[in-house]
Design a binder for these strands. Sequence first.
DNA 1: CACTCTCCCTGAAAGC
DNA 2: TGCTTTCAGGGAGAGT
Length: 274
Amino acid sequence: MPELPEVETICRELSLYIVGQEVAKVEKFCEKLRVQVPSNIESILPGARIKKIFRRAKYIIIELDIGKVIVMHLGMSGKLLLRNAAEHYKKHDHLVITLANDEKLVFNDPRRFGLIDLLETERYLESRYFCDIGVEPLEDALNANYLKIIFQNKKSSIKNLIMNNNILVGVGNIYAAESLFLSKINPTSIGSSLKPSQLDNLIKNIRIVLNKAIQAKGSSLKDYVSLLGKVGNFQDQFFVYNREGEDCKICSEKIKKIRQSGRSTYFCPNCQKL
DNA sequence: CACTCTCCCTGAAAGC
DNA sequence: TGCTTTCAGGGAGAGT
């Protein structure tokens, strides 16, 4: 489900509402996620206080005062919800963290592509999740020179490259399509064929798209909701994603849908000529 | 090594 | 209506 803006939205809301809270109780209902949920999570967390919540790539990192961080990933269908004590548990609630004020932080994920792990604060960046991943798109480390060097011997399409988490993180299927549209770059273009000025422009537009989506609290397709069940509305600003057959908002050409590496790509054949 | 394919899983929507 | 097929915002690992 969620790409960078959705995960960022959840982290910001979590920071607002649960930093400083103490964990009272942890209930695990399913441990078979993408990675096995640590078997000791129910015994280790109670009594820990939440110090800080932040994002790296599409991971949510909850730092505790016991020298550990909870690392969560929402996969395609995961949700993190804050519920009050009176609300019932629901289907696919896999982990419920009850806080000292009786509110419950609920990890719910029908497809179970997400993950929950517990790592040492001092060493989590060395873990398999973070040791090899690319740069944050909203930070200076992403620049035209960096991409130029990485792209020079690559033969895959620009869309696949900007979705490659070993190069840059956080850009998934929606925001890749939207960024390429704003940049007037055909998604099938070979990465190494792009000029530095095009790379500059693409980076600028990736940031515009991500920042606008964060402002809108993410995109809601099907079932994405932020922490308190509120719905992001960036989907109203999509130029191409999920708009097959509809008119391009710039030139009125029909938006096309193709398949790249097994995933749908939407683009305007007129605005994004090869 | 670079790249694509397949699979993990459930559920909504489309097709018949 | 109901059954079957396809597709979905991610990512690892296998295969070419």
